[in-house]
């Protein structure tokens, strides 16, 4: 690792004052320190955000607010989350290993970097790591890369399970800026598509700090998270689906579906949700939803499998939650 300063402030304000160009906030560090060892990330200062009092989970009017440094294992285990937002518990428990979940934080999970092997290899061209250097993945060996939301400059996959569930649950990110200002943004506006600037992954500005994630009341009581991977445990998703549905009189009253393993960000497609609404569950309907989901997929060589796999997982999850 390259040398860096380490700061351990005890208020969010002090943490923001400590941050300057080249600063990284460290929560769990499970991704950041890994990338620092590889010299993919080379911050010259780490500001430890574990002592800012951001580790609480508190009920709001009808929803819940999750502090930025709540550990993934504690979030999965929270009785309120288990009861009302079980899809989030399930997604968290499907990710990483118990040791990593005990360390990794909620905000850190949202901000984790891609596991594209070319991003992690400092000798490979990568527009995300080194803007303008090209993309070794396009034309390279592909397996866990994105098929939705890609650009010619980057096809890196967003690796999170947790964020997929949060996307289906309409999560909002609470962000504090210097001077004490606070803003809130939904995940659709938080994550950016790679376009020509894949190194800018979110709309978080320098000098801003995520303090919490808010979940509104769950949009449905039928919830499931299904993940397909290359081994039974402790592997990133080839494809995953989070489903949050509400049924009324045998029809789908509302549907919120989000997808992992396919997009450059945790993926949600309003057309899929709309297609399902007010319909009776059927195989034909679920097949159609799969067609709509994958209508713009860029199936580069090595990634062709993602289309049928994502469609089958979608169908399986919809069958499960509408039963």
């Amino acid at each position: 690792m390259r040398p860096f300063d380490y700061h351990r402030p005890d208020t969010a304000e002090a943490a923001l004052n400590d941050a300057s160009d080249g600063t990284a906030f460290i929560g769990g560090g499970t991704n950041l320190l890994d990338l620092m060892k590889l010299e993919v990330m080379t911050p010259d200062r780490l500001v430890d955000v574990n002592h800012l009092g951001l580790n609480r989970i508190e009920e709001t009017d009808d929803g819940i607010e999750i502090g930025a440094t709540v550990r993934n294992s504690d979030l999965a285990d929270d009785a309120r989350i288990r009861r009302r937002w079980p899809v989030l518990s399930r997604a968290l428990l499907a990710g990483a290993s118990p040791q990593l979940r005990n360390t990794a934080t909620t905000a850190g999970n949202l901000l984790q970097r891609t596991r594209c092997p070319y991003f992690q290899d400092i000798d490979a061209a990568c527009n995300k790591r080194d803007p303008g250097s090209g993309c070794a993945a396009v034309g390279g060996e592909l397996r866990n890369h994105a098929v939705l939301g890609t650009s010619e400059h980057c096809i890196a996959l967003h690796p999170s399970d947790m964020a997929v569930a949060m996307r289906a649950l309409d999560a909002e990110v609470v962000i504090r800026g210097s001077g004490g200002s606070t803003r809130t943004t939904g995940l659709p506006d938080f994550y950016r598509l790679p376009g020509e600037t894949p190194h800018i992954e979110t709309t978080l500005e320098p000098g801003e700090l995520i303090t919490a994630i808010r979940l509104p009341a769950p949009p449905g009581d039928r919830q499931a998270y299904r993940k397909v991977r290359e081994r039974a445990s402790y592997a990133f998703a080839l494809v995953s689906t989070a489903a949050v549905l509400r049924m009324e009189n045998g029809k789908i009253a509302s549907a919120a579906l989000a997808f992992g393993g396919v997009g450059t960000q945790p993926w949600r497609d309003a057309e899929v949700d709309t297609l399902l609404r007010d319909e009776r569950p059927s195989n034909a309907l679920f097949d159609k939803a799969g067609e709509v989901l994958m209508r713009n997929a860029e199936l580069r060589e090595g990634l062709e499998f993602k289309k049928p796999l994502a469609q089958r997982v979608l169908k399986a999850v919809l069958t499960e939650v509408t039963r």
């Binding site: 380490y6 460290i26 769990g28 560090g29 499970t30 320190l33 890994d34 060892k37 780490l46 294992s73 290993s97 118990p98 040791q99 990593l100 005990n102 360390t103």
Partner: peptide, 23 residues
């Protein structure tokens, strides 16, 4: 040394963690 194998697992304040991926 990258949090993938678990050989470094220790118990910190009652919780098992990868000692290699934390300062």
């Amino acid at each position: 040394d990258h949090g993938q194998c678990g050989a470094c697992t220790v118990i910190a304040d009652g919780r098992r963690i990868n000692a290699c991926l934390t300062l």
